[in-house]
Design a protein around this nucleic acid. Structure first.
Length: 687
DNA sequence: TTAGGGTTAG
């Protein structure tokens, strides 16, 4: 069991010479013994000004001098006071008993007031912590759970959650102490603990009110990370099951929480609840919903909620416009984005750094590099300083478009704006060079980053290692993996996933086992990507039993198999023309309740093709059409490959035509497939 | 600061 470190008690008490409560901060001193000190005539340099306790205590209460008690408590060994709390004194210390007797007449509310004032400051908190068990020992105050709840609240406020929990062991938990503990947990971001206490509370037969849930949801919103959706849903289900009445604040907070957790549907539902009760949502709530809808690319709904914001009477401010802008940028609606910008100008709403960043993002995405540059100039003119964010976005867009040479001009632009690259920027840059096989550039950027005094993080190392793996430089990747650890950066699950893939591609099965053991030793738990990688590498080298075993282990471990995982398996069978096994894996996937993805269906078509079963391959296309899954260029190219495989060359042009009619743009592979089919056809006719 | 952002692995 963990032991409580002895709380730090003020030690200067006696050194002050007067045996009074001098070590406390003046306010606390005045609060607690201001009146008593002066009346006892002790010389003190502190003026006897009425403090908070004097204000709270009735006149008669100020007659009690708590100084001897507080001195006694601070001179006692703290653990004794804290751990032997409820138990009666084991031996009779006459001094302590006399002291206790002298306070027999103090009414309960004076003790409460004393405790509250001691709890108010971090310096006097140890005295408060010692006081409560002491009162309990001597049965001087009977509303023990109120005393404990005051104390637990105070400990929670000063981030001493551990102490609060230790304290809560002193007495059986009442609704009051439960609430105090839950509140302390919520304040300290220990939301799982808070939820656990809530269910424990229910098991003890106490009903919780909305305040506990409100505190938990508030803590979720305050966190810089978006809330975990599963956790949030759990809380909401509980609120529904327990029929907790929701007040306006909690409803608004829930809408914001669901919006931030990227569940705009649930957010909209709760928004309707607010409006159904005749309440009007806060504008911050509406903006959060606009932002979530925009992030999901649901722009028309975002527009509708934005209109509601206007109807609410408050003129939308920059953040509201930014939320709307986010949606348009997300779906690539550049015209609409520009209109928002113009409307802001018309309404005198000043664009800020984010507004400009969003628009620059949109222009870069549309390949309108000049417009992006003009906006950068406009930012400068309007005294809005860009930061590293917008430049790393530009870089990421160029990377995804394959236009990496232009990245050097991004760097130039950035310099001319006086913006220094940060870690995120370098990480994107290293990733970009890695993806385009420019490993020397990647290493140079890595060195530059360190010269700039920026320590690489796990993302940096992972990116660098993966870049080398992708280029086939597995030995160098392995060296970097070791170097990462030497530099003091601990590998994470992603790092191991990258290395597992690397060893799997090389078919170094023994080393792979060692790596998995190392991962476990480090206390890291494999995730869905880990298992999918294993299924992929085992499957591709024909080790199907190992692949299936991974799938089973994963399911047994409680992880949900992903569509990608089945895709890896179906794909592995397909590449070896094992269409029966591919179909079987597909069936298992369906039994697991996974909706077939375009990727897995394309692989299935390939499986039939490699097995010369063209009728079944086209049946998959039919299935796609019936279930509303839009075939892509890969689907049609694979179907053409199927026809070539079974030598039905004459049917290839029709598939090509259908592809174009369905709106797919043929790529190099598609055109190549058509060409080779035509070539074979010509050969057939000429013989 | 009522309201917000970026990077890595299958």
């Amino acid at each position: 069991m963990l032991l409580l470190p002895p709380p730090q008690f003020p030690t200067a008490t006696h050194a002050a010479g007067v045996g009074r409560f001098h070590c406390l901060r003046p306010t606390a001193h005045q609060a607690i013994c201001g009146g008593a000190t002066t009346s006892s005539g002790a010389s003190t340099s502190l003026p006897a000004v009425a403090g908070p306790v004097d204000a709270v205590l009735p006149l008669e209460g100020r007659r009690h001098d708590f100084t001897p008690l507080l001195n006694y408590l601070s001179s006692k060994a703290p653990p004794q006071a804290a751990t032997a709390a409820g138990s009666p004194p084991t031996h009779l210390d006459p001094v302590e008993l006399r002291l206790a007797e002298s306070y027999r007449a103090v009414p309960a509310h004076h003790w409460h007031a004393l405790l509250k004032s001691l709890s108010a400051s971090r310096d006097t908190l140890p005295s408060a912590t010692a006081l409560v068990p002491w009162l309990q020992r001597h049965k001087l105050c009977y509303s023990v759970d109120l005393l404990y709840s005051i104390l637990i609240h105070a400990l929670g406020r000063s981030k001493q959650l551990y102490q609060a929990f230790l304290l809560s062991n002193q007495a059986s938990l009442s609704p009051l102490t439960y609430n105090a503990l839950i509140s302390a947990c919520a304040r300290n971001g220990e939301l799982v603990k808070a939820l656990g206490l809530l269910s424990q509370m229910r098991r003890d037969g106490f009903q919780s009110d909305y305040v506990n849930y409100s505190l938990i949801v508030q803590s979720l919103i305050r966190s810089p990370d978006p809330p975990d959706l599963a956790f949030l849903q759990k809380i909401y289900t509980e609120i529904e099951v327990e029929k907790i009445e929701l007040d306006a604040k909690l409803l608004n907070d829930l809408v914001v929480a669901f919006s931030r957790a990227n569940d705009p549907d649930r957010a909209l539902l709760l928004l309707a609840v607010i409006q159904g009760q005749g309440l009007s949502p806060k504008s911050a709530t509406l903006v959060a919903v606009v932002s979530a809808l925009g992030g999901a690319g649901r722009v028309s709904e975002a527009e509708a909620v934005f209109e509601e914001l206007k109807e609410g009477g408050l003129a939308p401010r920059t953040r509201a416009y930014n939320a709307l802008l986010k949606g348009y940028v997300k779906v690539g609606a550049l015209k609409d984005a520009e209109l928002v910008f113009e409307e802001m100008e018309r309404n005198g709403v000043a664009p800020d750094e984010r507004t400009y960043s969003l628009l620059i993002d949109a222009y870069t995405n549309a390949g309108r590099w000049e417009s992006a540059r003009i906006l950068l100039k406009e930012m400068e003119a309007n005294d809005v300083r860009p930061n590293s964010y917008v430049f790393s976005r530009m870089l990421a867009i160029l990377r995804d478009k394959g236009d990496w040479q232009r990245s050097f001009s991004v760097l130039k632009e950035m310099k001319s704006n006086g913006v220094c690259p940060d870690r995120h920027f370098y990480n994107v840059m290293i990733d970009m060079f890695g993806k385009y096989n420019c490993l020397q550039h990647a290493m140079d950027a890595f060195a530059r980053m360190r010269e700039d005094g920026i320590e690489p993080d796990t993302v940096t190392w992972n990116t660098l290692i993966d870049g080398h793996c992708k280029a086939g430089l597995h030995d160098r990747a392995r060296e970097l993996f070791e170097e990462m650890q030497h530099s003091g950066c601990l590998p994470c699950t992603t790092t191991y996933n990258i290395m597992i893939n690397s060893l799997g591609v090389q078919e170094r099965w023994g080393d792979l086992e060692d790596l998995l053991a190392r991962m476990r030793d480090q206390g890291l738990i494999p995730n869905t990507v880990t298992y999918t990688t294993l299924v992929d590498v085992y499957g591709k080298s024909g080790r199907f039993n190992d692949a299936i075993e991974c799938l089973e282990v994963m399911k047994a471990g409680g992880l949900n198999p992903s569509p990608t995982m089945y895709h890896a398996l179906v794909n592995a069978y397909a590449q070896r023309g094992l269409s029966e096994q591919a179909v079987n894996a597909f069936r298992v996937m369906r039994a697991d309740g996974i909706k077939p993805s375009l990727l897995v269906l394309n692989s299935l078509i390939n499986a039939f093709g490699e097995d010369r079963r063209d009728t079944e391959a086209f049946a998959v296309l039919q299935y796609m059409k019936e279930t509303g899954i839009k075939p892509d260029v890969v689907t049609y190219t694979t179907l053409m490959k199927v026809l070539v495989r079974v030598e039905k060359y004459d049917k290839v042009p029709a598939v090509y035509e259908e592809m174009i009619l369905s709106g797919c743009t043929p790529d190099r592979k598609a055109r190549g497939m058509l060409r080779s089919a035509l070539k074979y056809m010509k050969q057939m006719f000429s013989t």
